[in-house]
Amino acid sequence: MKTASVKELKDELKYKDEKELINIVLRLSRFKKENKELLTYLLFEAHHEDDYVESVKAKIDEQFLSVNTRNIYYAKKGIRKILKEAKKFIRYSGNKETEVAILIHFCKLLQDFQPYYSQSKVLRDICTRQIVLIKVRISTLHEDLQYDFEQELNMIDY
């Protein structure tokens, strides 16, 4: 089976009525957890972006507390998993401000993750890459937001 392009899907969806669209969306949500998470964001959390950012930050905080610190290998693996999940939540939002806020929070927590942060070049490189990405995203924001986020970014030692 050949997968249809986004344009083809969009054109076909124009011809569906409301009941058919609801059934399609509900059927789609049954197949993958990510589809259901995205649908949840779009329906319930997209209108309250600040609350969404705070809930993602709280989830990242919890994940940092549960990282396996018995071995540096497991600690690095846990940090990468946290970053992957943070990127997933950023992708759901698609908002540059949300991305910057979440990544700055991640970098702050990563730098406070002692003694592993100071011992591991891999963790320092992860943080450095995220800071470069943050700087690129900040440059695309409004001037007032740029100033606010640059002030937060300057509090991170890199």
Score class of each variant (00 low, 15 high):
Asp148Trp: 02
Glu143Ser: 14
Tyr117Ile: 07
Ser139Thr: 09
Tyr117Ser: 04
Arg137His: 13
Gln111Leu: 09
Phe106Tyr: 11
Ile104His: 06
Glu143Arg: 12
Cys127Gly: 08
His142Gly: 06
Ile138Cys: 04
Arg129Ser: 10
Lys108Cys: 13
Tyr116Thr: 07
Asp144Gly: 09
Gln130Cys: 12
Leu109His: 03
Arg137Ile: 05
Thr98Val: 15
Val122Thr: 15
Ser120Val: 11
His142Ser: 10
Ile138His: 01
Lys108Ile: 12
Val122Asn: 09
Val132Thr: 10
Thr140Val: 09
Pro115Tyr: 01
Leu109Asn: 11
Ser120Gln: 08
His142Thr: 06
Arg124Thr: 10
Asp148Leu: 08
Val136Ala: 12
Asp112Phe: 06
Ser120Asp: 05
Pro115Lys: 02
Ala101Tyr: 03
Gln111His: 12
Thr98Tyr: 04
Arg129Gln: 08
Asp112Thr: 09
Asp112Ile: 06
Leu141Gly: 01
Val132Trp: 00
Ile126Pro: 04
Lys135Asn: 14
Arg137Asn: 15
Ser120Thr: 10
Val132Leu: 07
Val132Met: 03
Cys127Trp: 00
Leu123Trp: 06
Thr128Met: 11
His105Lys: 12
Asp148Met: 05
Glu97Ser: 05
Glu143Trp: 12
Ile104Val: 14
His105Cys: 12
Val122Lys: 08
Val132Arg: 04
Lys121Ala: 15
Val122Met: 09
Thr98Lys: 02
Gln130Phe: 01
Ile102Thr: 07
Glu143Ala: 15
Tyr117Glu: 00
Phe106Ser: 02
Leu145Lys: 10
Leu110Arg: 01
Ile102Trp: 02
Gln119Phe: 10
Thr128Phe: 10
Gln146Pro: 04
Leu103Lys: 15
Phe113Arg: 06
Ile126Tyr: 11
Tyr147Leu: 10
Leu145Arg: 03
Asp125Thr: 14
Val122Gln: 09
Asp125Gly: 14
Gln146Met: 10
Leu133Thr: 10
Thr140Ser: 11
Leu103Tyr: 07
Gln111Asp: 08
Asp144Tyr: 12
Val136Gln: 14
Asp125Ser: 15
Arg124Ala: 13
Ser120Trp: 08
Tyr117Gln: 02
Gln119Asp: 07
Val100Leu: 04
Leu145Asn: 03
Ile131Pro: 00
Val132Tyr: 00
Val132Lys: 06
Val132His: 00
Thr98Arg: 03
Val136Thr: 14
Gln114Gly: 06
Glu97Trp: 00
Ile104Tyr: 00
Gln130Tyr: 03
Leu110Tyr: 01
Glu143Ile: 15
Leu109Val: 00
Gln114Ser: 11
His105Trp: 07
Leu133Pro: 00
Gln114Val: 08
His142Tyr: 13
Ile104Lys: 07
Thr128Ser: 15
Gln114Pro: 05
Phe113Ala: 05
Ile134Trp: 04
Ser120Glu: 05
Leu103Met: 14
Arg124Asp: 09
Thr98Glu: 02
Leu110Thr: 03
Ile134Leu: 07
His142Cys: 01
Asp144Leu: 11
Tyr147Thr: 13
Tyr116Arg: 08
Gln130His: 09
Leu103Val: 12
Ile126Thr: 12
Gln119Met: 12
Val100Ile: 15
Gln119Ile: 07
Tyr116Ile: 08
Asp112Leu: 12
Gln146Thr: 06
Leu133Ile: 07
